[in-house]
């Protein structure tokens, strides 16, 4: 489903060039569960941003569902994100003035889904994440774990093919972090491709496929039980 070929991402900082990704080749099949680990500054977030079409490689090719997506316009990429990709962030990125429900609704509004269907989907997803009685709460009235569950609901409401999570438990305590991972794994077991960037060994270990990045290069890529 995802195919990276010799992808390079180089940042220009002043007159210095920082190579965040160095000729990365990567193949990901639909339904995989992948963790990406590595030291700070090794290029994990950069890789995830490129996979999520938030960033463009300087060189190399990115094929999504067999189609070259690096040459798409900004708006075509936005449409691809809307239809195929979900994001979960370390800092949730919920809009503070909107209720939980309204935050989940946002991608569907942008996609032009009719109101009734939006309400139906929200109802279903709130039930699935066990927050149906928190629909009207604003982010400042919810706990970190609840916020991340809302964020996951928002990321999956458009039924994407792949969910990209950059340190989704980085801002949570052990217990709620575990719950979030459980939720993500449940989604994966229903066929969603799941890619998690994490610093937590215990979380990283749980993935069927574990990728290690060092200095912008994939240094290890193991599949199977750790």
């Amino acid at each position: 489903m995802i195919r990276l070929e010799k992808v390079e991402r180089i940042f220009q900082v002043g007159d210095q060039q920082v190579t965040a990704l160095n000729k990365v080749d990567l193949n990901i099949e639909a339904g995989e569960y992948i963790s990406i680990m590595g030291p700070s500054g090794s290029g994990k977030s950069t890789l995830l941003n490129i996979l999520g079409l938030l960033d463009r490689p300087n060189r190399g090719q990115y094929l999504l569902d067999g189609k070259d997506v690096t040459s798409l316009t900004d708006d075509e990429q936005a449409f691809t994100r809307q239809q195929k990709i979900g994001f979960v962030f370390q800092f949730f990125h919920l809009i503070p003035r909107l209720t939980a429900e309204a935050n989940i609704e946002l991608p569907m509004i942008l996609a032009g889904i009719p109101e009734q269907e939006r309400k139906d989907r929200i109802h279903t997803v709130l039930k699935a994440i066990g927050l149906e009685n928190r629909a009207d709460h604003r982010p400042d009235q919810l706990s970190g774990g609840q916020l991340q569950r809302i964020a996951i609901a928002r990321a999956t409401i458009m039924q994407p093919k792949v969910l990209l999570a950059d340190e989704p438990t980085g801002n949570l305590d052990q217990h709620s972090g575990g719950e979030i991972i459980q939720l993500l794994e449940d989604l994966n077991s229903k066929g969603l491709t799941l890619i998690i960037v994490t610093h937590d060994m215990n979380i990283g270990k749980r993935a069927r496929r574990r990728i290690r990045i060092v200095d912008g290069q994939i240094s290890a890529d193991e599949t199977g039980v750790a």
Partner: peptide
């Protein structure tokens, strides 16, 4: 908004 697919 951009991440969840808003166009320019």
């Amino acid at each position: 908004l951009k991440a969840i697919g808003a166009s320019k």
